Measured scan of single mutants.
Amino acid sequence: MTYKLILNGKTLKGETTTEAVDAATAEKVFKQYANDNGVDGEWTYDDATKAFTVTE
């Protein structure tokens, strides 16, 4: 299944996707991606759209 990450960081904005077996796996991938790019903020998840959002 495809999951999307929407980044609303102070220095990094954009979107990326990942293929994962479930939302928990996608969340781990996205949190590592955000951490690697220096984005740390409030996380939300919308199951209807399979989209995670992180806002700094």
Rank of each mutant, 00 (worst) to 15 (best):
M1P: 08
M1I: 14
M1F: 15
M1G: 12
M1V: 14
M1A: 13
T2M: 11
T2F: 08
T2Y: 07
T2D: 05
T2H: 07
T2P: 05
Y3I: 02
Y3Q: 02
Y3F: 14
Y3R: 00
Y3T: 02
Y3L: 02
K4V: 11
K4Y: 13
K4Q: 05
L5S: 01
L5P: 03
L5R: 00
I6F: 11
I6G: 02
I6W: 05
I6T: 06
I6S: 04
I6H: 06
I6E: 04
I6M: 06
I6D: 03
I6V: 09
L7W: 12
L7N: 02
L7R: 01
N8D: 09
N8C: 10
N8Y: 11
N8M: 11
N8A: 08
N8T: 08
G9L: 15
G9M: 13
K10T: 12
K10G: 08
K10E: 09
K10R: 12
T11K: 11
T11E: 11
T11C: 15
T11R: 09
T11W: 14
T11D: 10
T11Q: 10
T11P: 04
T11A: 10
L12M: 13
L12F: 15
L12E: 06
L12A: 07
L12W: 14
L12Y: 15
L12V: 13
K13T: 10
K13S: 09
K13Y: 11
G14T: 14
G14K: 12
G14C: 14
G14S: 12
E15I: 12
E15Q: 09
E15S: 10
E15F: 12
E15M: 10
E15R: 05
T16E: 05
T16G: 04
T16D: 03
T16K: 11
T16C: 12
T17D: 05
T17L: 08
T17M: 09
T17N: 06
T18N: 04
T18R: 05
T18K: 04
T18H: 07
T18S: 05
T18A: 07
E19Y: 15
E19P: 05
E19L: 14
E19V: 15
E19S: 11
A20S: 06
A20V: 04
A20Q: 07
V21R: 11
V21L: 13
V21K: 13
V21W: 12
V21P: 15
V21I: 12
D22M: 03
D22G: 04
D22W: 03
D22L: 04
D22Y: 03
D22H: 04
D22A: 04
A23L: 11
A23H: 10
A23G: 04
A23I: 11
A24F: 10
T25Y: 07
T25H: 13
T25L: 06
A26F: 00
A26Q: 00
A26I: 02
E27P: 00
E27T: 03
E27W: 15
E27N: 05
E27Y: 15
E27D: 04
K28W: 09
K28T: 09
K28P: 03
K28Q: 11
K28A: 13
K28G: 07
K28V: 10
V29Y: 15
V29I: 14
V29K: 08
V29H: 12
F30D: 00
F30K: 01
F30P: 00
F30L: 05
F30I: 01
F30N: 00
K31E: 04
K31H: 08
K31A: 05
Q32L: 09
Q32V: 09
Q32I: 10
Q32S: 07
Q32F: 05
Q32N: 08
Y33W: 14
Y33Q: 03
Y33D: 01
A34C: 15
A34H: 01
A34R: 01
A34G: 03
A34V: 09
A34W: 03
N35W: 14
N35M: 15
N35T: 14
N35Q: 15
N35I: 15
D36K: 10
N37W: 14
N37F: 14
N37A: 13
N37E: 07
G38L: 06
G38Q: 07
G38Y: 06
G38R: 06
G38A: 06
V39P: 01
V39H: 04
V39M: 08
V39T: 03
V39N: 02
D40S: 14
D40L: 12
D40H: 15
D40A: 12
D40M: 13
D40F: 15
D40W: 14
G41Y: 03
G41Q: 01
G41I: 02
G41D: 01
E42L: 13
E42N: 09
E42I: 15
E42T: 13
E42H: 12
W43I: 03
W43Q: 01
W43K: 00
W43F: 04
T44D: 09
T44L: 07
T44M: 08
T44E: 10
Y45G: 00
Y45W: 04
Y45T: 00
D46R: 03
D46Y: 03
D46S: 05
D46F: 03
D46C: 07
D46M: 04
D47C: 07
A48S: 12
A48V: 13
A48Q: 11
A48F: 12
A48I: 12
T49G: 06
T49P: 03
T49F: 07
T49L: 13
T49H: 11
T49N: 13
T49I: 10
T49K: 11
T49Y: 06
K50M: 10
A51Y: 07
A51N: 05
A51T: 15
F52I: 01
F52K: 00
F52D: 01
F52E: 00
F52G: 00
F52P: 00
F52C: 02
T53E: 05
T53W: 06
T53H: 05
T53P: 00
T53S: 06
V54P: 00
V54S: 01
V54L: 12
V54N: 01
V54G: 00
V54Y: 03
T55I: 09
T55P: 01
T55A: 05
E56H: 07
E56T: 07
E56N: 05
E56D: 09
E56L: 08
E56C: 06
